[in-house]
Design a protein around this nucleic acid. Structure first.
Length: 490
RNA sequence: GGCGCUAUCGUCUAGGGGUCAGGACGGAUGGUUCUCAGCCAUCAAACCGGGGUUCGAAUCCCCGUAGCGCUACCA
């Protein structure tokens, strides 16, 4: 049997990390099995579905590097891939169910249903549809129709028995049919509900495995019952666990960024996001941590997907991000950093290619995220230095800092070559000549030049800034030190 | 309330009737370097609780507890 899986988001918002992981697992499973990955948009909720969301989901999927074999934009034999365009399939399936006696029209209004549930709750019963419309006579139906009521179509649930399946990640799961009720298949406005549309489409699209979050476990028996009523063979199911926030609650906006695109804006690269997501609920051997998408597509198996919920750990994401950043080839790394900085509003147009290359090189392994390029490299991106209060305070503590800074400015002025090597030579020579420790000369210079007490190597800093800019910053800091230091000392 | 899922270091996890319960992130300490980052080394840190089965249970079974999910004419 050929493997066909699908990711079926509803376009009611941005692609959430949980959805992204579900999409990823589907693609990984499909590719590892030489199967087909289908994308289907479940937009049967016309109230909440928007084109903006649909577009955002496509964008997020593409950003992650995920590619579907069938679906919007690429077509396929089993389209259309928007549920809103598949109305006739649902109606046809409903007719079959009706003919088989497995579906019946129910005319209750939302208010009546609400009243029914309330009464049940009062009596201490669990709220569920009581089947009052199960056996309406033709006359009763006609009366409702005459009164202008449109029916919702409900599924006639088997009175007893159990519905079970062998879940790939959890083993056997069984539900007693009696805990279920006659759920709605098609709403009174003619649109199918999720459980119904999902099954009809999964059958039509020849889906062999349903890989999704465990919040769908309790939908599964209903869906299985529909498969059976439609005389269709059900797919295998694999329910991955939820992704939780650091507080153990289901991950939501309250936890900060949860849309995939927000992570991109924070400087996470898609390779890292994919890697991290894969590790949330799946492990190859408990040892290997770093994977590319291509590697994952080779080694992924559903059997190794874990059943326990996983907490989304930003620190680990950033570590993985740093690892991927380190592994990027230099031109790629440069492209990512510059693209990020431009998106953040930095104008790099006046910079030479060589300067940019050196800038990125100087950033080195200091980037956990691309956003760090802005903080670590900020000194070179703006015309003026901004002193961090703590850094400036520490500079004020240093004896004769103005003297050292002025001397350094002089040494840099005298270095006509201005290369990385000559800068190093000049600074080392000055330290030796003054009899001061190299570090004691560099520390104040670092603050004066970058405004911070941590920065890339000092020679790179000077070189990146250029002679004029370096001298200006050194002298300005010296002057300010001279003006403020005595007061600080007193 | 009902139903369901889950339970190994703070976090992601490996393992699974007899192990020093392994790795990674994060944390701490030391080394290297002009700072930071990186790199290297070292350390602390876990089998939810109670019963049972067994020579032996973290592992199998039962019960409990906790967390989460579902309980819509949302998906």
């Amino acid at each position: 049997m050929s493997v066909r899986v699908r990711f079926a988001p509803s376009p009611t918002g941005f692609l959430h990390v949980g959805g992204a992981r579900t999409a990823l697992f589907n693609q990984l499973f499909a590719r590892s099995q030489g199967g087909v990955f289908v994308l289907r948009i479940e937009d049967t909720d016309t109230e909440r579905s928007t084109d903006t969301s649909t577009q955002a989901i496509f964008d997020a999927l593409r950003w992650l590097g995920l590619t579907w074999d069938e679906g919007p934009g690429v077509g396929g034999e089993h389209g259309p891939y928007f549920q809103s365009e598949r109305g006739e399939h649902y109606l046809a399936a409903l007719r079959r169910l009706e003919a088989a006696g497995a579906a019946y029209p129910a005319y209750e209004t939302p208010e009546e249903l609400e009243a029914m549930r309330e009464a049940q709750t009062q009596r201490g019963e669990s709220p569920r549809y009581d089947g009052r419309a199960r056996d309406l006579s033709g006359a009763e139906r006609a009366a409702f129709e005459a009164a202008g009521r449109r029916p919702a179509w409900r599924f006639r649930l088997p009175a007893s028995g159990e519905t079970a399946w062998d879940d790939i990640v959890r083993g056997r799961i069984a539900f007693q049919n009696e805990v279920l009720d006659d759920f709605v298949l098609v709403r009174s406005d003619g649109l199918p509900t999720y459980n119904f549309a999902c099954v009809v489409d999964d059958i039509a699209m020849r889906i062999s495995h349903v890989v999704r979050g465990d919040d769908h476990i309790s939908n599964t028996p209903r869906q299985l019952l529909i498969y059976s009523a439609l005389a269709a063979a059900p797919p295998r199911f694999a329910h991955a666990s939820m992704i939780l926030g650091p507080d153990g609650k289901r991950l939501s906006k309250r936890h900060g960024a949860t849309s995939v695109e927000a992570f991109g804006e924070q400087g996470i690269v898609p390779e890292a996001m994919v890697n991290f997501l894969a590790l949330l609920g799946w492990a190859l051997d408990g040892k290997t941590e770093l994977f590319t998408l291509a590697e994952l597509e080779r080694v992924f198996t559903l059997e190794r997907v874990g059943a326990n919920p996983a907490v989304f750990d930003t620190a680990k994401l950033e570590w993985i991000n740093a690892q991927h950043l380190k592994r990027l080839a230099e031109p790629d790394r440069i492209a990512r950093v510059t693209a990020f900085l431009r998106a953040r509003g930095h104008d790099l147009s006046g910079r030479s290619e060589a300067w940019i290359r050196e800038f990125v090189h100087a950033l080195g392994d200091r980037l956990k995220t691309l956003a760090d390029a802005e903080t670590v490299g900020g000194f070179a991106l703006a015309e003026d230095v901004t002193y961090e209060p703590d850094a400036w305070a520490s500079l004020l503590q240093r004896p004769q800092a103005d003297d050292k800074l002025t001397a350094l400015a002089g040494a840099i002025a005298a270095d006509s070559e201005g290369s990385l090597a000559s800068i190093e030579a000049a600074i080392r020579a000055l330290a030796a000549e003054r009899g001061i420790k190299f570090g004691d000369l560099v520390a104040p210079a670092r603050v004066a030049l970058t405004g911070r007490s941590a920065s890339p190597g000092i020679f790179e800093v000077v070189h990146l800034l250029g002679r004029e800019q370096s001298m200006a910053r050194l002298r300005a800091a010296a002057a300010r030190w001279a003006a403020e230091a005595p007061a600080a000392a007193g």
